[in-house]
Amino acid sequence: MSWKRDGFESHEGKVGVLLADGSEPGPVYFDLGSSSHFHESTDWWAYDGTFRRPTATSMRGRCACGWRGERTFPIDWRQAERDGLDAYDTSGPELDWEAHMDEVAARAVPLPEDVAGLLRQLRERLDELVDDTPLTVLKVAGELEEITAFFGPLATRLLTRAQEIPLSRVAEVLGMTEQAAGSRLRHYEHMDF
């Protein structure tokens, strides 16, 4: 299970685990048959010690951007087995990730209120139209793509010409991970407008 916040999708949060020595284990692998492909997982419940997998002793919040929660929460595997993994309390790590996301949101450039209002109205109106007139919604989507295809590359070119801003700063201001910010910039750099 992962956590996401609207507008900050690349900052996917999850429960991370620590071993008894304080280290963070790598992914665990599951052999699902006789093929050469092995499924891998970093889900907290996979570190229960069965089938010679590592045994996690505590959990903490983690984010795709590399952030790790400072607070740790012990894992009681007997209780997790008794109550069921879905019922096990992972609220501590999630609350820490939410606090991290509050900090990410505070550093991100806010949308001007009039633009945010227009986008909100557009989303609501499209939600009303999509079931009854999907062709209209496709027409609107095309118009939005044209707007994006013009302004995305223009803003990217102005940004790169005006000054050399480190990718870490671009990611911070856009409220995304460096990987997602780099991908967005490359995408717009190669669009024609």
Rank of each mutant, 00 (worst) to 15 (best):
D48A: 01
D102C: 04
V140L: 10
F150N: 01
C65H: 11
V15F: 01
E124H: 06
D86L: 03
E40M: 03
S183V: 06
D31F: 05
D114P: 06
L126W: 03
R169H: 14
P110H: 11
A80K: 01
A106G: 06
S91Y: 08
L144D: 04
T90D: 06
A181Q: 04
D114N: 12
D132G: 09
R52L: 13
L159K: 05
F8C: 04
L135G: 14
P112G: 07
F51S: 11
A155Y: 13
W67C: 08
R71W: 03
P25M: 07
R125G: 01
A99P: 01
D21P: 13
R52D: 15
D132N: 06
V104Y: 05
L18W: 10
C65F: 05
E164L: 13
G182M: 04
F30P: 04
T50S: 15
T133G: 02
V115Q: 05
H11V: 12
H100R: 13
L138R: 14
W45K: 00
L18E: 09
F193C: 11
L32R: 13
P110T: 06
L167V: 02
F73I: 00
A171P: 06
T57I: 10
V115L: 14
F193Q: 12
P74D: 06
G117C: 01
P112Q: 08
H190V: 09
W44I: 00
P166Y: 10
E128F: 02
L111H: 02
A80M: 11
G152V: 13
S58L: 06
V130A: 05
L32Y: 03
Y88V: 00
A181I: 03
I147Y: 09
M191F: 02
L154A: 11
W45F: 02
Y29Q: 05
L19Y: 06
E9N: 07
T160E: 15
W45V: 00
W45I: 00
R53I: 00
E81Q: 03
A105V: 09
L85P: 00
G49P: 08
S34D: 12
R71C: 07
S35F: 04
F193A: 15
T148Y: 15
A87D: 11
E94S: 05
Y47W: 09
E70W: 13
H11F: 14
R184W: 12
M101K: 04
R157A: 06
R62H: 02
Y88P: 00
E189W: 10
G13W: 02
W44S: 00
P27W: 01
P25E: 05
E9I: 07
L144Y: 09
L185H: 09
Q179L: 10
C65M: 07
S168N: 05
A99V: 02
T148F: 15
G69Q: 06
W3S: 02
R5I: 10
D6H: 12
L167H: 10
K139A: 15
V104C: 03
A116T: 03
G16I: 00
G152R: 14
I165P: 08
T90Y: 05
S183T: 13
V170H: 12
